[in-house]
């Protein structure tokens, strides 16, 4: 109930801004990667274009991009000729296109938006700071206030749902193939959300600068008391095969099906991704069976 009200409110808010964006003095933005797109949309600013929109809708999912946003081509190589012809006021891009900044400068001023700092500080704080800076640059201070307020509200709701969680440590992972998973640990966006919930991460091993590591599924045997939260439901068949391997199926948490599955969430991208994760994870883990 709460969730639906929120989405309704958010989209009303979004459409209001979109009308505004069509007006003559609104800043015309273009998002050159998905985190930029997500965070712009979170501020209610509809970019003129987003790369790989279809896949964005499938993998990042929210905030939804309206149908009139232009497809820019591949994330790695957004179409420069198209960018020129769209005449944007500002290009919002991430680290991945940093080497192109100089050339992009000939089209419009570029803004480097990076919610995923590589240091080991809190990812949510980083994401919030990056979003605040973006909002300042685009004169969207009130939209930022509104978004963070709704973000905190959703996080509170999620914590509420998890109040009676049984306290087991949690593996958060995405299935890669029938022997391997991408597990999220220290320094990951998901970890920052789990910290807010007070849930212990079962993976304490090595992680990359994005906070993830590819591991063999048998490493789950290190914590047989844990629970597994699988992010991404595109590979359910593979997950079943992965969990049916002899070593894994002999573990108590697989035998007792302490496994939850949630739809795709981007594991980077700052507050919008964190919001989606906190909602989906709390709904899956807060259900009756895990209490």
């Amino acid at each position: 109930m709460h969730r639906r009200t929120f989405i309704g409110g958010a989209s009303a808010f979004l459409f209001a801004r979109q009308g505004n964006a069509a007006g003559s003095n609104a800043i015309k933005t273009i998002a050159l990667n998905w985190p930029s797109a997500q965070n712009l949309l979170a501020l209610g600013i509809v970019p003129l274009g987003i790369p790989e929109i279809e896949r964005y809708a499938r993998l990042a999912v929210e905030p939804q991009a309206p149908a009139n946003v232009r497809e820019l081509g591949l994330r790695a190589e957004p179409n420069l000729e198209l960018l020129v012809s769209l005449r944007p006021d500002i290009l919002v891009l991430g680290d991945d296109l940093a080497s192109m900044r100089e050339r992009l400068g000939a089209i419009a001023p570029s803004y480097l938006f990076n919610p995923d700092q590589a240091d080991h500080s809190d990812r949510l704080a980083n994401g919030r700071q990056a979003l605040a800076d973006l909002a300042t640059r685009l004169n969207a201070g009130s939209a930022f206030q509104a978004f963070t307020a709704s973000f905190e509200r959703e996080l509170d709701d999620a914590r509420q749902r998890l109040q009676r969680y049984d306290g087991r440590p949690l593996f958060v992972a995405t299935v890669l193939d029938d022997r391997r998973m991408l597990v999220f640990g220290r320094n990951s966006l998901f970890q920052s959300v789990l910290d807010r919930f007070g849930i212990e991460n079962a993976w304490t091993g090595f992680t990359s600068r994005y906070g993830h590591a590819a591991i063999n599924v048998d490493r789950l045997a290190d914590r047989p008391d844990a629970r597994l939260l699988c992010v991404g439901n595109e590979r359910v068949v593979t997950m079943d095969r992965l969990l049916s391997a002899p070593v894994i199926s002999s573990l108590s948490f697989v035998k007792n099906r302490r496994i939850a599955l949630i739809p795709e969430v981007l594991f980077y991208g700052g507050l919008p991704s964190a919001r989606r994760f906190s909602r989906l994870a709390s709904l899956a883990l807060g259900s009756e069976e895990y209490r």
């Binding site: 591949l74 994330r75 790695a76 680290d95 991945d96 296109l97 080497s99 890669l176 991408l182 990359s208 994005y210 993830h212 590591a213 590819a214 980077y268």
Partner: peptide
């Protein structure tokens, strides 16, 4: 590739 680095696409 195995490490699934987001910088891979570039």
């Amino acid at each position: 590739m195995a490490a699934q680095d987001p910088r891979l696409s570039q």
